[in-house]
Design a protein around this nucleic acid. Structure first.
Lengths: 243, 243
DNA sequence: AGTGAATCGAACCGATCGGTTCGAATTATT
DNA sequence: AATAATTCGAACCGATCGGTTCGATTCACT
């Protein structure tokens, strides 16, 4: 399974891009080649886990010689960390912009919750999370950094948003920090663990996610919504019926 | 690190128990020896993960020759599955009996929530979950079975409990199944992911767990509690003050 | 005391691992 | 055309892997 000479992937020749980009090959650090390596590493690491993935697998998948990989990365672990760092960035990028708009509070929460749940339970993100969790025993800093720069930052953004809503008198919350955790966990309720443990093999449908998130928002607003919010929603409902 | 002759662990000689148990050594299947192997495997697998753990490590830790292990288990994977099966049983045993008592609804929910959160975030259970999640890519049935016979069964028990409370008119719940998920996720809110990703290295304190669970129960009951429940709690509060 | 099952311990197997080395080939620059 | 940097590909290293084999030993039972 290792001896096959199938190097057809090399035809892609990202090298061309690398050279066309104008700059000289760079002193041992061509960012294009680096990306090429990480892209190969992603396919291997994410699908096999850290231990089961071999550097030869990555070599093959990236279409790059092993020596070259070790020019860009000191060892397997460093390559893995670089990959996870990139994955984390891509996963959580743009996730929290659903909080930016000036819509109705409930609508905004639902939209954000759906974006969150959809992302976090998507096949590739679940695979990435499994891989990170799997090595968190041996490389705890990696898991910690993943969480800190990912979910934790998003959490801070959500806290800001909730505080704004509190400022507007729409919510009454004793512990905003905890409430933010409760909200996100309500949105991923049922899904997250089922996906992680591979109990659920299919990605949750949009309908299912929408249903669960709406219910979560219901619970959240029943617990923390003020009368002012209720009154506002009553208004909207009425004017909505008129239209 | 492999060549050390440190076999001092052999002095424990669980063999004695095995023999004292009266029955003859049994035809290739002494349950005591089997347990001895699994106990060694537990220490190695849980702390190192499936891949990083070697059969020689287990051999050493169990104080058993490698040949013997392969008499009891066909291969590494089968040994691992047997171990996880045992772990699952031990982890979830007695976890749900907190639902049995006939106390106040809120008190019962809090007690159950605390038991759940305490268990699920304990150091050894987090390690076990990480290990299972880590292999769920390659052995999805294992993760699925772990979830199904563990959390899923507990979920069913919780649904029964909630339905009873609904029957008593204490709760109004449109989707009991979803509500049960919401409840458990509210109880482990904030903790679960932080522990899994090793962002939190210390086990949550009893106070912290109590605080989060009480808040979770608050949210849950504000969302699903009936007026009858509110009235009952008002009564209890009053009579409590008298006492 | 003798028998047979069960275990031990250690050598052994082929394969693969992460990582290194190096000459040949490729490339952009001068 | 010559030069310097970079990559390739393949061989190679020592270590370890999961798994097998087998003679020596231990033990329970007769």
């Amino acid at each position: 399974m290792d001896g096959d000479k199938d190097l057809t992937g090399k035809e892609g020749h990202e090298l061309l891009d690398s050279l066309r980009r104008g700059g000289r090959p760079a002193a041992g650090q061509d960012p294009v080649k680096r990306k090429q390596i990480i892209d190969g590493a992603r396919r291997v690491f994410i699908n096999m886990g850290f231990d089961a993935a071999s550097m030869n697998d990555i070599t093959r998948e990236a279409g790059v010689s092993k020596g070259t990989i070790y020019v860009y990365f000191q060892n397997k672990e460093e390559l893995f960390e670089a990959l996870i760092e990139e994955e984390r960035g891509e996963i959580f990028r743009n996730m929290y912009e659903a909080l930016e708009n000036r819509d109705d509070l409930r609508v905004t929460l639902v939209r954000f919750g759906i974006a969150l749940a959809t992302k976090i339970t998507s096949a590739k993100v679940i695979l990435a999370q499994r891989t990170v969790i799997g090595v968190s025993d041996r490389i705890p800093e990696l898991g910690a950094r993943f969480y800190e720069r990912g979910p934790r930052r998003g959490h801070a953004r959500l806290v800001e948003f909730l505080e704004a809503a509190i400022g507007k008198g729409l919510l009454t919350v004793a512990d905003v920090d905890l409430a933010a955790y409760q909200f996100t966990d309500l949105c991923m309720s049922k899904f997250f663990r089922q996906c992680l443990f591979a109990y659920r093999t299919e990605v949750p449908s949009n309908d299912e996610i929408g249903y669960v998130v709406r219910s979560g928002v219901d619970v959240f607003l029943k617990a923390y919504g003020t009368e002012k919010l209720a009154a506002l929603e009553q208004q909207n409902k009425a004017s909505g019926k008129e239209a």
